[in-house]
């Protein structure tokens, strides 16, 4: 997977990445109550690679670790174990190098929180240009105007403050800002989940158009499988910090293998489901602080056997995709 030729080298590579958060109470309170440290394993042994000009999506429910992966991918968090490589260069080293750092950027979920409310839009968009000294003087305003037009706003919108825009327009501003550093790789953390559907379509179309035109590579995080299907070449399904199924998006959608992937696809309300009754899968996502032993999905899994309760399934190739499931590996799925 990682020995590809340099020209065909993945833009971003994660090798057995794990991220643990200390979520215990403050030291004094903890010692007085005699508690142990509480560790949250937000991401557990995740590996993936993103090829240039393509989109890898990570889907999962809240708490599955997908946003943590997104933040690790741009260096906001360092992995507790394993390694991330950007353009073949270890990520924290890549982050220290402005020339490499410039080539990655991020689009956030909440268009109301991702723009500084006290800044004018032109300054928000210009910040990366100034930070990387990509232009100076009047050239900055020209570039800002160009970026605003590129995302479907007008140059005059730079005068305004974020609160003067609707959610969809703000997300356009976020995209303009993300593009301002002339990146090749964008991490998109649920970029449309705060938007209304008709606006979501506009933003998704815009993002796809930009990808084609600028040859961008996306790491796309979402909980919405339909959006993910629309956007991505490859797909990873996460559950409690692990990537349980990963492969070509089309392959997963046409033949989901992991029981959790099947549950997710089954659970999504769909327009095609008019009036159809279905049997929802029971159970809830367990706490990531104390995940179940063995396969973390076993308490909800219809296929679970004794082995699933004790032995953690390794990721293994199953047809076109990779799946971490005993049932799939041993053929009782």
């Amino acid at each position: 997977m990682s020995d590809a030729m340099a020209a065909d080298r993945p833009v971003l590579e994660a090798e057995h990445v794990t991220r643990v958060f200390d979520v215990s109470r403050p030291m004094l309170a903890r010692l007085m109550a005699g508690e142990k440290k509480r560790m949250l394993r937000a991401v557990d042994d995740a590996s993936f690679a993103i090829r240039r000009g393509t989109t890898l999506s990570l889907v999962g429910e809240s708490g599955c670790g997908k946003s943590t992966v997104a933040r690790m991918a741009v260096g906001l968090y360092a992995p507790s174990a394993g390694a991330m490589r950007f353009e073949g260069c270890e990520l924290s080293a890549a982050r220290r190098d402005a020339a490499l750092r410039r080539r990655m950027n991020m689009i956030f979920q909440d268009p109301y929180a991702s723009l500084n409310p006290r800044w004018r839009v032109r300054d928000i968009v210009a910040e990366p240009i100034r930070a990387f000294r990509l232009a100076r003087g009047a050239a900055v305003s020209e570039r800002v105007a160009e970026l605003l037009v590129q995302v479907g706003l007008s140059a005059a919108d730079g005068q305004k403050y974020p609160h003067e825009f609707s959610g969809g327009q703000r997300q356009r501003v976020s995209i303009a800002r993300a593009l301002a550093s002339e990146p090749e790789f964008l991490v998109c953390d649920e970029p449309t989940s705060a938007l209304d559907v008709s606006v979501q379509a506009q933003i998704l179309n815009l993002m796809k158009g930009l990808q084609e035109r600028l040859g961008l590579t996306y790491l796309f995080i979402s909980h919405n499988l339909a959006v993910v299907r629309h956007m991505s070449e490859r797909l990873g399904v996460m559950y409690l910090g692990r990537i349980v199924e990963m492969g070509k998006a089309e392959a997963i959608f046409s033949k989901p293998q992991h029981p959790y992937t099947r549950l997710l696809l089954e659970a999504i309300p769909d327009l095609e489901m008019v009036g159809r009754a279905r049997t929802p899968v029971g159970g809830e996502v367990p706490s990531p602080i104390a995940p179940p032993p063995g396969c973390a999905f076993h308490p909800r899994c219809p296929l679970a056997r004794e082995k699933c309760r004790s032995v953690r399934p390794e990721t293994a190739r199953a047809g076109e995709v990779e799946v971490a499931c005993h049932a799939v590996a041993e053929g009782w799925g």
Binding site: G168, S198, V199, A201, Q202, N205, L225, R229, F253, D270
Partner: peptide
């Protein structure tokens, strides 16, 4: 404009502008 689960289109239909 709602992306469908069962098929993939190159481009979603969109309503221009905002409410």
């Amino acid at each position: 404009s709602i992306p469908a689960l069962d098929r993939k289109v190159a481009r979603l239909a969109q309503i221009e502008g905002a409410m």
